[in-house]
């Protein structure tokens, strides 16, 4: 049967992998190419790179990183951050990305998702949603790295993105991101139950049980984590073995 995916996430700025708490307080975690290679060797199912500054200088650096990783690592690579137009999607795909993640621009210009999916196929369009709880059972979409509220309901927005051609949703709980207190399982469950396309749970992983909970309780198709892998606490292999011991189908 299909395996649940484990996706290490590399937040990249100025050519380095960094990790923050609740989208701020960045801490250096190392060289992206080296880290990508290590995770591939450990059995990562995919890798996600997020260009968290997306300034024009950093853009060139990111492209070179993706090119280098794509020459050595033969698993799917998702790249996001600062994708504003169909040309940005094309350039990232040409650099070696297999999927491109669109976040803020999907809100500002939903047609971008439709145009990019129409041109390159839904399989390479991931819509990233940063959501924050606004009331019991309700979550609001934020953009600009979590700085701007949109008034959009996360579940309705995810459905809308599916309808426009997104192939997958990368769902981050802003309340949990960097807290190491586990995924927002209610948010994950609400979005995954509303969709036909796969959902990647993100934000809050602090231990391996959180990954199990994301799949079993949250219903996620894939789980994304950063800091538990970056600082050597757990290997991807250990995470997979733990999930397998808890009855989850994984690629070992």
């Amino acid at each position: 049967m299909l395996a649940k995916r484990i996706i290490p996430c590399l937040d990249v700025t100025a050519g380095r992998v960094v990790k923050g708490v609740s989208f701020v307080e960045l801490r250096d975690a190392g060289d992206p190419v080296e880290i990508a290679r290590r995770y591939d060797e450990q059995g990562a199912d995919e890798l996600t790179f997020l260009d968290i500054t997306a300034s024009s200088d950093d853009r060139g650096i990111l492209f070179r990183i993706i090119e280098q990783v794509a020459e050595q690592v033969f698993i799917p690579l998702t790249v996001g951050g600062g994708v504003r137009q169909v040309d940005d999607v094309r350039n990232l795909l040409n650099a070696g990305a297999d999927k491109v993640s669109i976040n803020t621009s999907a809100v500002l210009n939903p047609q971008l998702v439709a145009d990019a999916a129409g041109r390159y196929g839904s399989q390479c369009i991931v819509v990233a949603i940063d959501a924050k709880q606004s009331a019991a059972g309700r979550w609001e979409v934020f953009t600009h790295g979590g700085r701007k509220a949109t008034g959009l309901d996360a579940v309705a927005w995810a459905r809308n993105m599916q309808a426009l051609g997104a192939g997958e949703i990368l769902l981050t709980s802003m309340d949990r991101d960097g807290t190491r207190s586990g995924f927002d399982l209610a948010l994950t469950r609400a979005v995954t139950d509303a969709l036909e396309i796969p959902v990647i749970a993100s934000g809050g992983v602090g231990n391996l049980q959180h990954l199990v909970d994301g799949v079993k309780l949250g219903g996620a198709d894939a789980v994304l984590a950063a800091s538990i892998f970056h600082y050597g606490e757990y290997t991807v292999q250990q995470a997979k073995q733990y999930m397998a011991q808890h009855g989850i189908e994984v690629r070992l």
């Binding site: 395996a3 192939g167 036909e196 959902v199």
Partner: peptide, 21 residues
């Protein structure tokens, strides 16, 4: 088909995306 379920009754998404045997 739409509304695919696995043996445990969990929804199977389409596209079929990921690593399979």
């Amino acid at each position: 088909a739409a509304n695919l379920r696995d043996a445990q009754g969990n929804k199977l998404k389409v596209p079929h995306m990921g690593w399979n045997q």
